[in-house]
Design a protein around this nucleic acid. Sequence first.
DNA 1: ACTAAAGATGCATAATAAATGCATGTTTTG
DNA 2: CAAAACATGCATTTATTATGCATCTTTAGT
Lengths: 141, 141
Amino acid sequence: MKLSKHTDYAFRSLIFLAGQPPGQRVTIQDICDFYTISPNHVSKVIMQLVRRGEVESVRGKGGGLSLARAPEEISLLDIVREFETTLQPIDCAEQPCRIIGNCALQGILGSAVEAFLESLAPYTLADITSSEVQVLRLQAD
Amino acid sequence: MKLSKHTDYAFRSLIFLAGQPPGQRVTIQDICDFYTISPNHVSKVIMQLVRRGEVESVRGKGGGLSLARAPEEISLLDIVREFETTLQPIDCAEQPCRIIGNCALQGILGSAVEAFLESLAPYTLADITSSEVQVLRLQAD
DNA sequence: ACTAAAGATGCATAATAAATGCATGTTTTG
DNA sequence: CAAAACATGCATTTATTATGCATCTTTAGT
């Protein structure tokens, strides 16, 4: 039971963007250099964030990326919901299960996932980027 | 974010066993026939349950499987803990992350997993096998 | 003692999903 | 018009999961 790297990369990209001085644009390359991950991947993740309205991208020479919203307005729950392809702990329909209809397991597991998500709900990007130290580190490249 | 089939098979096997009349033994083959899944897999899952003391196995001719404990004493949380290979939503150590030390994300995700597990804690096998109807269905083969 | 039933276990293979890389297109500034 | 930088699709690789095969061990019944 773990989250996909897409989700991971989304978080990291957002953290990096949040660590920039206001108005500063960074390229996908910058993000990849910092974390040593593949540009192709980050590119796709960023695209999703752009479509969702969390990141602003400017194309062409001199372009780049920046946060489109304040970190306080970017919910960690939303990110998980966006990038996790499945949030069903067990897919009972995948292979036909003969207990269907009387099985309470689905409900119990479903509410456990709900508890997981609920627990993320109060947090925003601001909560994971508040440290001054971290911002300094992000610049120190 | 989903659970492995091992966990799924463990739940199903336990449900099937709990649905048997007291003293009745069933073979791995019975379980596989009922759910149409592979004996090899179930065999390994059952072994883990035997080692943990949830299932009793009798080898040799006329042998078979039965619950070693009352369903009320078999915790769903224990099963998930046993069969999920990883309960870390993001493995920060896998690829070195430059934010380590200042990143609050790990803590937040960690407590979300805790919430997931906590939510399972109150339930036992009895909670997912209480329906009379289900027991009837399990026999009706 | 022998045979068949049934669990126990290790190894090899296949299937699936995730991750990565390559190639190419599009937009925009200078 | 050239270069920078985002945008996107496709192919390949990798890793994990799932499955299947082969073999061993135990035990009841004859």
